[in-house]
């Protein structure tokens, strides 16, 4: 049973909050249900047929009583609704300085890419006390990254990025599994979630084999796949500039504005005709069957890295 620690321990402050909420709710469940059980048992004995009991003036309706047992439990649940929704909303609000780790799920393994280019499979190392944001993509079916010790999970859906963030604060080795049924080997698609002290994490990063940082790998792809032919410096084609693009609003053809986030950049690479930046021709080809999800993530990292420089830096 000692292994249960890998599942059930509270590795983050969020996990502790969820457990507190659950405990409080359990108490409410007991308060709402035990009277029913006790009264049923008491009535079944006391008012057994043929048994002497005071049955004078039974009632068969009492609107106020009924309204009250509709309203009171409801108000109680509303309190819990607010509490739970507040906790949930925090999950959508990652700090800006979070370490960005990319996740690619495929049947039946988890691949992780750290910003420095370190890659690992079925193991995720993170530093304690620092916020981490995972950007996740799937190569095939829907998976779901589940880290019970954080009380967190998020589906990984093909065709879009999903994300999740956390600050783990207790170093240790925890479980990491797939929670969404994904085919034959679903139940063995898992591994370890390893929280290390920041110093140990730095050491681990240093020891891991690295070819390139993510952004650098993306830069290589950017040249190799011909992106630079249109989007690069000196290109003659009228293509949108990418420097400083990330996080900025992009006016679209036909009205509307989107923020250039990870999802937008991904869609622009794979489904380029869907959201066309206003004022540019529809000439971008799709890279749907050319790039893997990992490569797309590297390109996204590269484009994100083009923050500095003049606004029209890439185009002359």
């Amino acid at each position: 049973m000692e292994n249960l620690a890998g599942w059930a321990s509270e590795a983050s402050a969020h996990a502790a909050s969820v457990d507190r909420l659950m405990l409080a709710f359990t108490l409410m469940m007991v308060a709402l249900s035990v009277p029913v059980f006790v009264l049923m048992a008491v009535f079944a004995v006391k008012y057994r047929r043929g048994r002497t009991a005071n049955r004078a003036h039974p009632v068969n309706r009492n609107v106020w009583l009924e309204v009250s047992w509709a309203i009171v439990p409801f108000l109680l649940t509303v309190v819990f609704f607010v509490w739970a929704t507040k906790l949930f909303a925090d999950l959508y609000d990652p700090p800006a300085d979070a370490i960005a780790i990319d996740v690619v799920a495929k049947q039946w393994m988890w691949k992780f890419q750290h910003p420095g280019g370190q890659r690992e499979i079925n193991e995720l190392h993170v530093p304690a006390g620092e916020p981490v944001k995972l950007t996740m993509a799937s190569e095939d079916v829907i998976h779901s990254l589940y880290i019970p010790a954080l009380r967190l999970k998020q589906d990984v859906v093909p065709g879009r990025y999903t994300s999740m963030w956390f600050t783990a604060d207790r170093p240790g080795t925890y479980k990491l599994t797939c929670a969404e049924f994904c085919g034959v080997d679903h139940s063995v698609m898992g591994g370890s979630f390893i929280v290390m002290t920041p110093a140990a994490y730095e050491r681990w990063l240093g020891q891991s084999q690295v070819d390139d940082t993510l952004a650098a790998a993306g830069a290589v792809l950017f040249r190799e796949r011909g992106c630079s032919g249109c989007h690069g410096p000196g290109a003659t084609v009228h293509a949108p500039p990418l420097t400083g693009l990330y996080g900025r609003p992009v006016p679209l053809e036909g009205g509307g504005v989107v923020t250039a986030d990870d999802q937008y950049i991904r869609d622009s690479i794979l489904l380029p005709q869907s959201q066309i930046a206003a004022g540019y021709p529809h000439i971008m080809p799709t890279f749907q069957n050319v790039l893997s999800e990992e490569e797309v993530l590297q390109l996204v990292a590269y484009i994100k890295s083009l923050r500095s420089g003049s606004p029209e830096g890439m185009r002359q």
């Binding site: 053809e253 036909g254 489904l271 005709q273 869907s274 959201q275 066309i276």
Partner: peptide, 9 residues
């Protein structure tokens, strides 16, 4: 709603 421009085209 997901692909307005391409849908129309």
């Amino acid at each position: 709603a997901l692909h307005p421009a391409e849908f129309v085209a």
